[in-house]
Design a protein around this nucleic acid. Structure first.
Lengths: 349, 349
DNA sequence: CTGAAAGCGCTAACAG
DNA sequence: CTGTTAGCGCTTTCAG
């Protein structure tokens, strides 16, 4: 009975079946069981059936850790994003998980909360778990640091890197996915110009590449269009929808004609704060968001925004990772298109 | 050099450092390294320091699979919910992950999409990964089946079980978390009664315990209050916000005074559909939701709803699981309180 | 305080 | 077509 002979035969605490238990029940060797269960070609049909039967009878579920230890891959990927509770990130997470599980991969999830310390910890955990690959969304870490932390595990970057100075300009040529923030904002500015707004402000987001790109593009395009511009501070994420007061008070004084907000969550929060002060979009101040989260379309007024294909971002991230896993090299970076959706929060004046 | 002697000394492909590499560099045995790195009490300070140094130098990250294989626990938990992209589930997921990682646990995420087949697969994956415990949110499976699939892994149930006939009445006395749907809906009905609405309808949700409880309670309370009631079909989740037309057309004909919706997502979708038809809450039809997702408070009109403590649900789920892991027995089931939040979508008539 | 040896559950060589 | 043997990287007895 091999090395297992000293194991208790009638354990008081329920024990999971092992390969050897199945082997014994089916009267074959563990190797044969292993092969039969994985549909190895060189196992006879009759053996396979009896092994399957024995396995079912015992409720045998192979230990993924043990097999990955001997084999190569773990069949797991790590997903690190700022906050799954955020609508945009939630959609990306959903899509990544869906794509991954369709290919037999399991997703380890971690929230970084835009905190470099927490992000590093999460990456270390992924490394310790030996994930086959990692999807990193909206990280505060430089691609270099992230890669170094988990090397040689491939990492796909979504939404660019931390922005210190010109850091965001030299994006990696490979394994990175971003959305066309520049064209999106350019379309917004053109739309606002066509509407006739002469004083427009940008409402800042967190220190991520996407925000910097959107802000810089907005300010530049506005200048090019001869529209006067201003900049407001970041009022906080989805958590603090009611805590925008300081920023909004300033707006009420300045009374810009239109606001380009970093994202929809920000725009919706401001829309509400404005309403509390008796102001309504688009009549008093026009409002534009970014992302097109599901609630943007049912806000009142419905929010004009730049739609980004969040689910496709998630799917692409996983398939890029999968390609990297198979070929040993990550595919070239891609830029996903966005689309201006004009709704009710902007109007020609 | 022990059994590793046959390994390539200069691997072309970068290799992760192993315990043995650290041991060699620090001139101690692997055992000592293992103990030093885990701060075992019986290692001298000097040894510990030099081992730490060697480990850092090599960028050593212990293999969690290997250590869990020899030891007992994997330090992972499985989280299965219908859809992380849903605001409510996203918040729960966030809270579970946050609580888990604070205790050194890693979360495996899976979306079940309210599909029993996908839920079973996900649970099998968790079992294969040997998660220490599982948090099951809004599952379609019976607690019995779920437990059987992953036994002996403890599972905490959130939001009750599949509902076939009276199935939801005998909830497990242990390891289960739910919110007080009954009191929530009773408060809603009382509020609507006080407002003076005489014809109220309930808008159905998916076949989950929470929906059945809310619906049954609504219908019963309405009858008790002498208010005429009706029932509308489930118009779909967050995905199909624009696809409520059939249901809404019926409403426009029937013209109930108020609608109690299964959840906020439903209510917000209906609010928008009503607006498309020129009807506005609360003047034409009053609207009540459930959950108090972040966007409920910034809708226009702001949505009257029953607030449930989603993040606390997530935290409680994890701490209940943790307690179960430590004591070997899941704590008694708990019921979390809810709170009616009256906003603008209902008003006294 | 430290080390040698024996596995955790499984799969990948090698035989036959 | 099937079985035997040796580990995957780590921790844990059991000896010093």
């Amino acid at each position: 009975m091999s090395r297992q002979g000293n194991r208790r035969e009638s354990p008081l605490v329920e024990r999971r079946a092992r390969l050897e238990d199945v082997a014994r029940l089916a009267s074959v060797s563990p190797t044969t069981v292993s092969r039969a269960l994985r549909n190895d070609a060189r196992i006879s049909e009759s053996t396979r059936v009896s092994v399957q039967h024995a396995a079912n009878q015992l409720g045998y579920i192979p230990d993924a850790r043990a097999s990955s230890l001997r084999g190569r891959a773990t069949g797991t990927i790590g997903l690190l994003l700022p906050d799954v509770a955020d609508p945009m990130h939630g959609q990306i997470a959903m899509a990544v998980e869906q794509a991954a599980s369709a290919q037999g991969y399991t997703v380890l999830l971690a929230n970084g909360f835009s905190d470099p310390v927490q992000e590093r910890q999460a990456l270390q955990v992924f490394a310790a778990q030996r994930t086959d690959g990692i999807v990193l969304v909206g990280s505060m870490l430089s691609p270099q640091e992230a890669n170094a932390l988990v090397r040689p595990c491939p990492v796909v970057l979504v939404g660019g890197e931390n922005v210190s100075l010109a850091g965001y300009k030299n994006e990696p040529p490979t394994g990175s996915i971003r959305v066309d923030d520049i064209r999106g904002i350019e379309a917004v500015v053109e739309h606002l110009r066509a509407c006739g707004y002469r004083r427009v402000a940008y409402v800042n987001g967190p220190d991520l590449a996407s925000n910097v790109t959107r802000r810089d593009t907005a300010l530049r395009s506005l200048a090019n269009a001869g529209i006067s511009s201003a900049l407001y501070g970041y009022p906080g994420g989805v958590e603090s929808l009611g805590a925008l007061n300081a920023t909004v008070d300033t707006m009420v004084e300045d009374r810009p004609h239109a606001l380009i907000c970093y994202d929809d969550v920000t725009a919706l929060g401001i829309m509400d704060a404005l309403r509390s002060r008796g102001l309504r979009a688009p009549d008093d101040i026009a409002l534009v968001g970014f992302d097109d989260i599901p609630f943007a379309g049912v806000a009142n007024p419905r929010l004009t925004t730049v739609a980004q294909p969040s689910e496709e971002v998630g799917r692409s991230a996983f398939s890029m990772l999968l390609a990297g896993l198979k070929t040993g090299e990550l595919p070239p970076s891609i830029m996903l298109p966005v689309r201006l959706i004009v709704r009710e929060s902007t109007i020609a004046i």
